[in-house]
């Protein structure tokens, strides 16, 4: 019976902690352009795919990552070098992106985005046929 009571108070505590936890960090990014696409690697340790919210609206790419709650609430924090919180960053993209073909994946806390350029925006190559 005391076990159940303990679990209950822990879960209440973790909800409170989440509500109080309002830090928002600017994640580090690498951005590179290839002939066909724009690519981003975004560092968001602690975020899984369920915590991700990526939007492209009116040429603004918004990236939001919510950190999954951890289960360390019951312990006493004795040393702290980093704080946890959500990640948020926005970028303007002048190039026309093919929104239907945006690819996103997250691995080891790094989000990878591939934003393919629209056909019309790609450099045109005209093949010369040898007749």
């Amino acid at each position: 019976m005391s076990g159940t009571a303990m679990q209950k108070s822990e879960s209440q505590l973790s909800e409170q902690t989440q509500a109080v936890n309002q830090h928002t960090f600017t994640p580090k990014v690498d951005i590179w352009e290839t002939q066909d696409s724009y690519n981003l690697d975004v560092e968001m340790p602690g975020v899984d795919k369920n915590g991700l919210d990526v939007k492209l609206e009116d040429g603004v790419l918004s990236i939001l990552g919510r950190v999954a709650p951890d289960n360390t609430v019951a312990c006493e924090k004795v040393h702290s070098e980093y704080e946890t919180g959500n990640y948020e960053r926005q970028f303007h993209i002048s190039e026309v992106i093919d929104e239907e073909k945006i690819q996103a994946s997250i691995k080891n806390g790094v989000l990878n985005l591939e934003l393919p350029k629209r056909e019309s925006a790609k450099p045109k190559r005209i093949e010369v046929k040898v007749g």
């Binding site: 312990c75 004795v78 040393h79 702290s80 070098e81 980093y82 704080e83 080891n108």
Partner: peptide, 27 residues
């Protein structure tokens, strides 16, 4: 984010029996 360049950054928690360390190692 903070002044030290140490990698990875660590947090530590303690209870009666053990220590839990967490470290940010994205990528």
């Amino acid at each position: 984010r903070s002044s030290t360049a140490a990698f990875p950054k660590l947090n530590a928690w303690k209870n009666d029996n053990s220590i839990l360390l967490t470290a940010e190692v994205p990528g």
